[in-house]
């Protein structure tokens, strides 16, 4: 479910890549400073998008600087940070802690439990700081886990559940106004889109491993129609947001980059000679 909301590097200009990368580095820096160096390992692309979007709609001032870091000790690189970087960093840790616990419950993966307990201290602190968001995460992931264990046959239900989670995460400030409502609405659709995208990417593997996948219940030819329909709803709501900066990069992410995992996986199957087509019409 994580790592989908990212860019397709091959389709970005050099300038766009530099800017995206600077935000990525800025978020990494925030994670380190705000949550502890170990939290940097949790960094995901999805949260870069969150930071970019919030900074853009709230017109947050950018602090940019060039420096070296532990991952790039030789070559200095630029970093862009905003007030949203700290928020995205906190959400990143909250999300991952619960995701790790979930993996432990589902797969009894001891590494996940170990990692979750490693981050427990920081998690407890952030939980107090963002009670609203952390409750939403815990609640929705629990509900989602129950639906998946139960073998829910209507894909709208788990997708809607993940949508609710994403909707809550896009509301950075507790006060609510028209902008927060629009962000919440956009987040709900984005969450549904990510959930379905994750499902279609894993469909082949889930079938073979006899695991839950909501799209098993859907006739093959409808899968892409549903994804494109949901993507269209995401874009419609994105266009309604008062985005001031980086519109091009964010639209690129929502229209192209978000398909990256899916097509990387499909190309992997093609290489292996495994024939799998989810009714995707040739583009």
């Amino acid at each position: 479910m994580f790592g989908f909301v990212t860019v397709a590097p091959a389709l970005l200009s050099a300038e766009q890549k530099t800017r995206y990368r600077a935000r990525y580095c800025g978020l990494c820096r925030s994670l380190g400073q705000y949550c502890g160096a170990s939290c940097r390992l949790l960094l995901t692309y999805d949260l870069v998008f969150l930071e970019m979007l919030l900074a853009s709609v709230y017109e947050l001032p950018e602090k940019s600087q060039s420096r070296r870091c532990i991952a790039h000790p030789v070559r200095p690189h630029s970093e862009i940070r905003t007030a949203a970087s700290d928020y995205a960093a906190a959400i990143n840790v909250l999300l991952f802690h619960d995701k790790l616990l979930d993996d432990w419950h589902d797969d009894k993966n001891p590494a996940a439990l170990a990692a979750a307990s490693f981050y427990r201290g920081k998690y407890a602190q952030l939980q107090q700081q963002y009670p609203h968001q952390s409750q939403a995460i815990t609640h929705c992931l629990t509900e989602l886990g129950a639906m998946e264990r139960d073998g829910e046959s209507n894909p709208d239900l788990p997708a809607g559940c993940f949508g609710r989670l994403m909707g809550e995460l896009l509301v950075m400030h507790d006060e609510s106004g028209p902008l927060e409502e629009a962000l919440h609405d956009f987040g709900q659709w984005l969450g549904r889109f990510i959930y379905l995208m994750d499902a279609v990417t894993d469909l082949h593997d889930d079938l073979i491993r006899e695991r839950y996948n909501p799209l098993v219940f859907l006739p093959q030819g409808e899968i892409m129609d549903v994804l494109e329909l949901t993507g269209g709803e995401v874009m419609r709501r994105f266009r309604e947001l008062p985005v001031t900066t980086d519109r091009d990069i964010m639209e690129h992410i929502l229209c192209a980059g978000i398909w990256g995992n899916y097509h990387t996986r499909m190309q992997k199957y093609a290489k292996k000679g495994q024939d799998t087509v989810h009714g995707k019409k040739p583009v």
Binding site: A8, P9, A10, L11, E251, H252, C255, A256, G257, W259, G260, Y262, H263, T264, R265, M266, Q267, K280, V283
Partner: peptide
């Protein structure tokens, strides 16, 4: 946005 499955999956 110049989307093609190949470019995106690179």
């Amino acid at each position: 946005n110049g989307y093609t499955p190949i470019a995106v999956g690179l």
